[in-house]
Amino acid sequence: MRPFDYLEPETLDEALALLADDPDDTLVMAGGTAIVILMKQDLIRPARVIGLRRIAPLRAIGATDEGLRLGALATHGALARSPEVRGHAAALASTFAAVATVRIREQATLGGNLAHADPAQDPPVTLLALDGVAVARSKTRARRIPLDALFVDLFETSLEPDELLVAVELPRLPVGARATYKKFLPATLDDYATVSVAAVVATDATGACTHARIALGGAGPVPLRARAAERSLLRRRLDDAAIREAAALAAAATDPIDDLRGSAEYKRAMAGVWTARALREVA
């Protein structure tokens, strides 16, 4: 690893001020699980690193009037154990519990995970399906970015260099909504997903679908929503035919690449299989 300056501000304002000084040559570090590896492999060479770990308020997890707010420095482990998270959607808690290993989960943070924008990651997928919105701050402004506008490309977000992701907000789910997250791990259980699927549905008294969200991970350069598949389910009973049609549409929405976790063709096929499995679970 190459030498760099390391700064550890005590407050968010201090951090934003430091960042505003020299946004382009600064790397922001939360848990550091991803970027330390990249630095050790000499793939990124920051001149300056701002460590956020002293900014305790950013670890908060709590209910709001509109739903749930997750602090950017909450660790995966804390989120997996949080009663508020589990109360909002058990699938979200189990999504955080499905990431890597216990050592990583206690170190890696929500904000770090989202800002890293690795399309193979788990939390973005479920958060997308839960209509998550990122809250970003800079020294001079604040803005809310829906998650599907946050992810731009492989390892690239719409955050400005002087912006920090400070929280994710989740709106309250429709009454009776059911959610699940499926992580397909054909190799080992500590691996990145070959593909992953989050599905959230709600149905009315007749069994007709009133709300459908399907998000996919590992299936393209960014975590993506299968909107055509979602639309195909609305106002229909979630029977086998509807599920199969939605699964095919979800598979068609993917844009995977060949890599060590499977060929593009295999991943596309698996996106269909696991969308169907996810929908069957919540139907």
Binding site: I37, T188, L260
Partner: peptide, 16 residues
């Protein structure tokens, strides 16, 4: 080498 790391060269864990 396509996978010169244990992130990519997957060896089964105790759970697998």
């Amino acid at each position: 080498h396509k996978k010169p790391s244990l992130l990519d060269y997957k060896i089964p864990t105790s759970l697998d």
